[in-house]
Design a binder for these strands. Sequence first.
DNA 1: AGGTCGACCTGGCAGC
DNA 2: TGCTGCCAGGTCGACC
Length: 268
Amino acid sequence: MPELPEVETIKRDLEKTVVGQTILEVYVHDTMVVRNLSAKRFKGSLAKQTIIRVDRRGKAIIFEMKSGCFLIVQPMMTGQLVLGLRTPQARVYFKLSNGQYLNYNDQRRFGRLTLVDHLSEMKFLRTIGVEPLSGAFNPGWLKTQMRFRKTPIKNLLMNQNFIAGIGNIYASEILFRCGINPQRAAGRLKIEEIKLLHEQTVSVLNEAIQFRGSSVNNYRDAKGEKGHFVNRIQVYGRENEKCVRCQRPIQRIVQSGRSTFFCKRCQS
DNA sequence: AGGTCGACCTGGCAGC
DNA sequence: TGCTGCCAGGTCGACC
């Protein structure tokens, strides 16, 4: 599912269309995706609400309502927020005052929609780490925070309480561009490597946003379209294919239960 | 506290 | 054609 660039793409598209719209009706076809309230209260609380702002934190999209409450959407692996006509597979959909529907689709049903009065009610938002595209994420901060961390650098990049928004695809891509082996202990990186890691994290994420994200499986943006960054992915999902730099086969290993793709020769 | 693992779900695909 | 096992972009709670 979507990582930071995909969620940011959805957020920017939605922002243009839904800000100022009023939710006329809410339909909950699958109560499982609404976690903290009954479907009835969820519908009752959101009906007639006007959306005044759309935001993103890590891989979550946040809708702020005029009354002051917030709808947080975590698409997880297969969640999609698609504007337009009603989609038959929608788990939840919102009828907007401009006549459009905002559909929440989610094949695997891992995703969740949460309604709160204060963002701090959500543990996910209380503990989430630094936004990698903000000024707070810089080489000095990274150096201090990485010291003494024994976990492999790839795991640390994916730790949402450390940096917000990097998932399995971009973690592999960032490390390939840096020439850093994903199994290295985070605390053992040299200062030049930390600077490179910072620089490549920012540039990979920005480039992916520019290309409207990656579509590896069923990611779709708010218009229901695929992203184009998939054509620029150099290692993720390319086990046994030739490394673009040295032509040797890309390796796949498993770290904390997740696949990691890298080039043994180019990443040390 | 830091770190790892299994559970949560559905569906596509490879192999038999 | 079926069946089985494996795999998938994330997060949480339980455990060491």
